[in-house]
Amino acid sequence: MKRVVGIGGVFFKAKDPKALGAWYRDHLGFDLSEWGGAVFEANGSNNEAKTAWSLFPGDSTYFAPSTQPFMINYRVDDLLALLAALREEGCDVDAKVDDSEYGKFGWVMDPEGNRVELWEPPKA
């Protein structure tokens, strides 16, 4: 079974997400969307080639239970099978799975307490 097939996104906390986003826009050329982040496309415009970049408020609990100010999102082909395999391997897998128009999302904690987001893009 394939596990991770790419990076789906990079997310980190900021004291002032709007101001920091503006800095990235003005100085590094990020094309910010209305939701405050950017999407980078490589090798076309399909979901498998997109990488999101987003800032979260400093008090966001989205990365909890991790206390780190960042979270990496990895693309996977079969989220449910991977989560089952990770559980069998003794990993700390979140019981919640989010299924939305953006795809399926699941989470696991790495051994150093970093929350890792796993994303299966929606099928075309």
Rank of each mutant, 00 (worst) to 15 (best):
P57C: 00
Y24C: 04
D78C: 04
N43F: 13
G9H: 10
V108K: 04
S45V: 04
M109V: 08
N73T: 14
W107R: 12
D16C: 09
D59K: 10
D16V: 02
G90D: 06
M109T: 12
K50G: 03
G44D: 12
W53F: 15
A14I: 05
G90I: 03
R87A: 13
E34S: 14
D59S: 08
G103E: 04
P111G: 00
P122C: 00
E48K: 03
P17K: 11
R87I: 07
N73A: 13
L118E: 00
D77I: 02
P69E: 08
E101N: 10
P69G: 05
N73H: 07
E120R: 04
E112D: 15
A81G: 14
D78E: 10
A42S: 14
A52N: 09
L82Q: 05
E112C: 09
K50S: 11
D94T: 02
K50C: 03
S54C: 11
T67A: 08
V4C: 05
A14T: 11
G90C: 11
E120Y: 04
V93H: 05
K50Q: 15
G36I: 08
V93K: 12
G58P: 04
G103S: 11
S33K: 15
V10F: 13
M109G: 13
M71T: 03
F56S: 14
G21A: 10
R75P: 02
E101F: 10
L32Q: 10
K96M: 09
T61A: 07
D16R: 06
M1W: 02
Q68R: 15
V97S: 10
G106T: 07
G29P: 13
L79F: 08
E120F: 07
P69S: 06
R25C: 05
S66M: 01
S66N: 05
G58C: 01
N73C: 10
D77H: 04
Y24S: 09
G106N: 01
K15H: 05
P65F: 00
R75W: 11
W35I: 02
C91N: 09
V93Y: 09
V39H: 10
W107T: 00
N47E: 14
K18E: 15
E41S: 12
W119R: 04
Y102S: 07
L28W: 15
G29A: 14
L79I: 06
H27G: 05
E88T: 13
D99H: 03
K123D: 00
R75E: 05
D99T: 11
W35E: 12
A85Y: 03
W119V: 01
T67N: 09
R75D: 01
E88F: 01
F63G: 12
E112F: 04
A81T: 11
G36W: 11
F56E: 15
V108D: 06
M71E: 12
G8F: 03
E101K: 09
E101V: 14
W53G: 00
G21K: 07
N73L: 01
Y62Q: 00
A38I: 06
K13N: 07
A19M: 01
